[in-house]
Amino acid sequence: ALAAVIGIGLFIFIIHGALNQDSKLTWNKVKPGDRLYAYDGFFKDTILTEFTPFRLLKPIAASDIDTMKIQEWEKVKLKAQLDTSLKPQLVTAEITYKVDSLFKSKSSFVGIYVGKDSIHESGFIDHWYIFKPA
C-alpha cells in the first residue's frame, strides 16, 4: 500500500511538472505591464484552431449580498441559504482568440500581464497569468 501511495504521488509530481514546464520560460521574468503573446505552437499545430482564456469565479459571500439591489427580506433569505462550501473556480471566458484572426492581424498578441495566480481548481495546472485582453 505504501508503494502504491508513493507511486501515485510520484506520478502526480511528474505530470504536474510536465504540464507546468513551459511556464518556467516566463514565470520568473514577467512583470506587470508586459505584453503577453500566445505560444507559437498555436500557429503550427492544425488541431489548435482557437485559444480561449478563463474567468475566475468566487462563491457569493454575505458581503456580496449586501450590495445587491434587492429587498431586505430577500437578502436575509439569501444569507440563510448561503452555501459556504463552494470554492473559487475557473470557467472559459466569453471571448476566444481564433488562430485565423491572429494570422490575419499578423500578431500573437494576447493582452497585458497584470499578475500571477495559483489556482488548483482546474486539473494539475496551477500557474496562471492574470491579464487584460488585447
Partner: peptide, 30 residues
C-alpha cells in the same frame, strides 16, 4: 458567460495557463 449558481465573477480580469504565454511575438510574425 456560464456562471454556476452560487458564484459571481471574482474580478474583471482574464486568466491564461502560463504555459501558453510568451513574452515575445511568435516567430511566424516577426
Amino acid at each position: 458567460l456560464d456562471i454556476p449558481k452560487g458564484y459571481i465573477l471574482s474580478n474583471d480580469n482574464y486568466y491564461m495557463d502560463a504555459s501558453d504565454a510568451r513574452l515575445e511575438e511568435a516567430p511566424q510574425f516577426k
